Simulated assay, not measured.
Amino acid sequence: MSGNNLNTAATVMCPHGGQASAQPAQSRVVAVGSPAATVADLYTVTGCPFTVGTKPQPCVTVRWTGPSARIRVNGSPALLQNSRALCHSAEQAPQGPPSVTVVQQRVVGA
């Protein structure tokens, strides 16, 4: 699996349109001016409108499950544009995969 490496400036959205933002676990390694993204980063989702019946169940976090098998950043596996992930509600219910729509184009990994 190869693809463009994610950095914290990448646009990541939950399946319902909420915006995910990264809080980087490291700031030493950068990719095109922003910290390189790893599985250790905390991704929080804001603005998700998802409800089940009348109960709001918005996505609040993104949990990455398929990072790069070869690239590590300060010991943590790097994230690629096509890395697998799931968004989760506050009750930890899986809500579906996020979409990565805008990513830097210079650094490619496997």
Results as ranks from 00 to 15, higher is better:
34 S>A: 09
79 L>V: 03
60 V>A: 05
58 P>C: 00
95 Q>D: 09
76 S>I: 03
27 S>P: 09
89 S>L: 05
103 V>F: 07
77 P>G: 01
78 A>W: 02
41 D>K: 07
47 G>Y: 07
51 T>P: 13
16 H>K: 05
56 P>Y: 08
31 A>C: 14
76 S>V: 03
93 A>T: 12
17 G>V: 06
101 T>C: 10
92 Q>A: 14
63 R>S: 09
20 A>N: 09
73 V>R: 01
87 C>A: 01
66 G>P: 06
71 I>P: 04
41 D>V: 07
91 E>W: 06
79 L>Y: 03
79 L>H: 03
15 P>K: 00
84 R>E: 15
83 S>N: 08
103 V>T: 08
69 A>E: 06
42 L>P: 12
102 V>Q: 15
76 S>W: 07
3 G>E: 03
35 P>G: 10
42 L>R: 15
93 A>Y: 10
6 L>Y: 01
36 A>R: 02
41 D>W: 08
91 E>F: 09
20 A>L: 12
10 A>P: 11
50 F>N: 10
32 V>Y: 15
46 T>S: 08
7 N>Y: 03
37 A>C: 12
83 S>E: 07
10 A>L: 10
70 R>N: 15
16 H>R: 06
102 V>A: 14
46 T>H: 04
93 A>P: 05
12 V>H: 02
29 V>D: 04
95 Q>N: 12
77 P>F: 00
81 Q>W: 09
78 A>N: 02
82 N>V: 11
18 G>R: 01
90 A>M: 14
51 T>S: 15
42 L>G: 10
34 S>L: 02
56 P>S: 12
80 L>W: 14
61 T>E: 09
101 T>H: 07
29 V>K: 02
9 A>Q: 03
52 V>M: 10
67 P>N: 07
57 Q>D: 08
39 V>I: 11
56 P>R: 10
86 L>C: 08
47 G>K: 09
61 T>G: 04
40 A>R: 00
42 L>Y: 11
47 G>V: 07
74 N>F: 13
29 V>Y: 05
9 A>L: 05
88 H>V: 12
15 P>F: 00
72 R>T: 11
41 D>M: 07
5 N>Q: 13
105 Q>K: 14
34 S>R: 04
13 M>H: 15
67 P>W: 09
31 A>L: 12
100 V>R: 11
19 Q>W: 07
